[in-house]
């Protein structure tokens, strides 16, 4: 893609975001909306700057619980995905259970975690973890299970062991699927930790928003949303960059095929 086209694409998406903020600001002024209902973006940013020293520890706490929960989720999800993807028996045995667990609304498990571990950091980490396992498992398992049968035959006639097939073929093949799920999971992990903070915690952006809304500091509530959006987008971008390095081969380049 040419540089001009890339720039045009960037400019379009940036102007859409800016446009929405301008529209929001204008609508609040024109319809005279109270800032108790919907604060203007300028108010939100002003609050963000003014309360920055106060917001920072909460943002840090949320980022911390999300990342720890996410890392645990990735470890468990990857191992479960490899297991389920490489064994028909494991797939048939575990899949219904996984679907069952994933269909439980995650908010519902927070009280149980609080009951077991008390309010605070641990339930947030666990909620973030449990919410991001499922997409990873399904994607990794799909990547491994869809290795072409012909390729598997070729590997078997070379007397490759199951581990060798997994290591040389299955895992690299599952990488694009894995990264696609990471991008989904990391945003889901935020949902998990914020929900847990909202329900039972005395720290984190979710908790801060609860307190702010109970004292009708609506601009601060929206500032919390902005912080969450920023954190979520940053991690998404981070994983997109890693994906491009590790699984870039799966993105078709518009190079001309040779002869």
């Amino acid at each position: 893609m040419s540089i001009a086209a890339t720039l045009r694409r960037r400019a379009a998406s940036i102007s859409l975001i800016v446009g929405i903020f301008l529209f929001w600001e204008a609508a609040c002024v024109i319809f005279n909306i109270s800032d108790l209902v919907l604060p203007r973006p300028s108010q939100v940013f002003e609050t963000l700057v003014r309360f920055a020293p106060g917001i920072w520890p909460h943002a840090y706490q949320t980022l911390y619980t999300t990342l720890v929960g996410f890392s645990l989720g990735v470890c468990i999800g990857l191992s479960l995905g490899v297991l389920i993807g490489s064994s028909r028996l494991a797939f048939d045995t575990a899949y219904p259970l996984l679907v069952g667990i994933s269909s439980i609304p995650k908010v519902a498990v927070v009280p149980i975690f609080v009951l077991w571990f008390g309010a605070g950091t641990v339930p947030a980490i666990l909620t973030a973890m449990i919410i991001c396992i499922f997409p990873i498992v399904v994607n990794v398992a799909t990547g491994i299970a869809t290795v072409e049968p012909e390729l598997e035959d070729v590997m078997k006639t070379l007397k490759a062991s199951r581990t060798e097939i997994l290591w040389n073929v299955g895992l690299p093949r599952a990488m694009p699927y894995f990264f696609a799920s990471l991008k989904v999971s990391v945003t889901l992990a935020f949902v998990g930790s914020v929900v847990a903070e909202t329900v039972a915690s005395n720290r984190g952006v979710g908790n801060m928003m609860m307190i702010a809304s109970s004292s009708f500091n609506v601009p601060l509530v929206f500032a919390g949303l902005m912080v969450l959006a920023f954190l979520g987008v940053s991690l998404y971008v981070l994983f997109s960059l890693i994906e491009r390095r590790v699984a870039g081969w799966s993105m078709r380049k518009n190079d001309i095929a040779a002869g």
Binding site: E150, L151, D153, V154, L158, E164, P172, S250
Partner: peptide
């Protein structure tokens, strides 16, 4: 020692041709 080739070339898309061809040497 058996070598096998199907109609579907099943080369590994993340490896260049040299590494693709070298794969059996890693295993056999």
């Amino acid at each position: 020692r058996i070598g096998m080739a199907y109609q579907n070339a099943t080369l590994l898309p993340w490896l260049n041709i040299r590494d693709n061809v070298m794969l059996p040497l890693k295993i056999v």
